[in-house]
Amino acid sequence: MIRQKYRVSGSALVLVVCALVAGCGQQQPQQQQAAPPPPAVTVATPNERTITDHDEYVGRFVAVDAVEIRARVSGYLDKIHFKDGQVVKEGDLLFTIDKRPFQTALDQAKAQLERARAELAFAQGDLDRASQLVRDKTITQQTFDQRTQVKRVAEANVAAQEAAVRQAQLDLEFTDLRAPVSGRIGDRRVSIGNLVTGGTTGNTTLLATIVSTDPIRFEFTFDEASYLRYERLAAKGNVNTSRDDLAARGGSSVVRLRLIDEKDFVHVGRMDFVDNVIDRSTGTIRGRAVFANAQGLFTPGMFARVQVPGSAPYTALLVPDTAIGSEQARKFVYVVRPDNTVVQKYVELGQLAEGERVIKSGLEATDRVIVEGLMRARPGIKVTPQVAPGPASAGTTARK
């Protein structure tokens, strides 16, 4: 009886274990069916805008007027009438050379002029008397001719002394050196009391330099291919960047500029010159723009970047630059199909416009482009798209 009881208990235990194993086998398929949800991504349709391509070039500011201050007469420097680095106006007094020797020379020239005039008056009176005497046959014709010659020599002497007075007056005026142009003057190169060498020879003394600041020019060079592109666009009437326009021979092209510490092209100027030859050694041609500089921010010699219109306005599709992926040399974007599967589309990129990239080909205006969550997307998988509000369409410019 005891053995039979144990046999029943063992059978019951086997049944319980089998029931547990069967339950585990039924729960395992249920756990396998609970797959993770599709990853969430943010999508947006391409932004459609009117774009104008711009080419960027690096250049340097140059002064419209740059003048070296040198004396026209030699002498000792007597006074300096400016502070180093000061802004001066045209006609302002800058230097004074000791006037005393030149005032003395002027007084001597005036005295010589008075002497010549007195000699002319005496010769004129002598000739008047000789005119009556020659008619009365009191003096010979030869004597009359001699007195006529003396009068003419006296007239020439007066003219020479008048020129000497004018030259002495000029020399005296040249002792005051004034600013020939408005602009900013540099530091003085000579101290008071030093001998200044003047004149028109090459060994004259440099006293200071003045550069004009408002307006100011910006010079840069662009390659031959760009020059041809501008000419062909202008020939089609698409953009006013031909040589005639750039050189202000009937128009001017608006350009924009930014300094090295600025992010945007906020300074507006106009082209006023393009050179007439292409440099053989570099294959580039020189262009020049003019910018207002009332605040004196731009300084000659300063570097900056300039934007020049490189195309006619056109309508383009733009996507955030962060949505662009790279596959070796090719660029692509991830697009979500209507069934929420991801597809890879290869695109041709254009220029950058305010943080968005111009797409020249490979994309449709209705495509839903993944702009956030690219690391979670793969071609062929399903995703959960979330629509991101896009910026309003507006005209803008594109740059390289």
Score class of each variant (00 low, 15 high):
residue 21 V to E: 09
residue 22 A to P: 04
residue 22 A to M: 13
residue 23 G to R: 09
residue 23 G to A: 14
residue 23 G to D: 09
residue 23 G to F: 14
residue 24 C to W: 06
residue 25 G to I: 09
residue 25 G to A: 10
residue 26 Q to V: 15
residue 26 Q to G: 08
residue 26 Q to E: 04
residue 27 Q to D: 07
residue 27 Q to T: 12
residue 28 Q to G: 07
residue 28 Q to L: 14
residue 28 Q to T: 13
residue 29 P to E: 10
residue 30 Q to A: 13
residue 30 Q to L: 14
residue 30 Q to Y: 07
residue 30 Q to T: 08
residue 30 Q to W: 08
residue 31 Q to E: 12
residue 31 Q to M: 14
residue 31 Q to R: 12
residue 32 Q to K: 10
residue 32 Q to S: 12
residue 32 Q to P: 03
residue 32 Q to G: 03
residue 33 Q to M: 05
residue 34 A to P: 02
residue 34 A to K: 04
residue 34 A to H: 07
residue 34 A to I: 14
residue 35 A to Q: 11
residue 35 A to R: 05
residue 36 P to W: 12
residue 36 P to H: 12
residue 37 P to Y: 04
residue 38 P to N: 01
residue 38 P to L: 03
residue 38 P to K: 02
residue 39 P to I: 00
residue 39 P to W: 11
residue 39 P to R: 00
residue 41 V to W: 01
residue 41 V to A: 00
residue 42 T to E: 10
residue 42 T to Q: 05
residue 42 T to P: 00
residue 43 V to E: 08
residue 43 V to H: 10
residue 44 A to R: 02
residue 44 A to G: 09
residue 45 T to M: 04
residue 45 T to Q: 07
residue 45 T to I: 04
residue 46 P to R: 05
residue 46 P to D: 04
residue 46 P to K: 03
residue 46 P to C: 01
residue 47 N to H: 07
residue 48 E to F: 04
residue 48 E to M: 13
residue 48 E to L: 15
residue 48 E to Q: 15
residue 48 E to N: 12
residue 49 R to S: 10
residue 49 R to I: 11
residue 50 T to M: 15
residue 50 T to Q: 10
residue 51 I to V: 04
residue 51 I to W: 00
residue 52 T to C: 04
residue 52 T to E: 07
residue 52 T to F: 01
residue 54 H to E: 12
residue 54 H to P: 01
residue 55 D to Y: 00
residue 55 D to C: 02
residue 55 D to M: 04
residue 55 D to L: 08
residue 56 E to H: 03
residue 57 Y to W: 15
residue 57 Y to S: 04
residue 58 V to T: 14
residue 59 G to I: 09
residue 59 G to C: 11
residue 59 G to K: 12
residue 61 F to Q: 03
residue 62 V to W: 04
residue 62 V to N: 08
residue 63 A to F: 07
residue 64 V to N: 05
residue 64 V to C: 02
residue 64 V to H: 03
residue 64 V to T: 08
residue 65 D to Q: 13
residue 65 D to A: 11
residue 66 A to W: 10
residue 66 A to E: 15
residue 67 V to W: 00
residue 67 V to I: 15
residue 68 E to L: 12
residue 68 E to A: 10
residue 68 E to Y: 11
residue 68 E to Q: 13
residue 69 I to C: 02
residue 69 I to V: 03
residue 69 I to D: 01
residue 69 I to F: 00
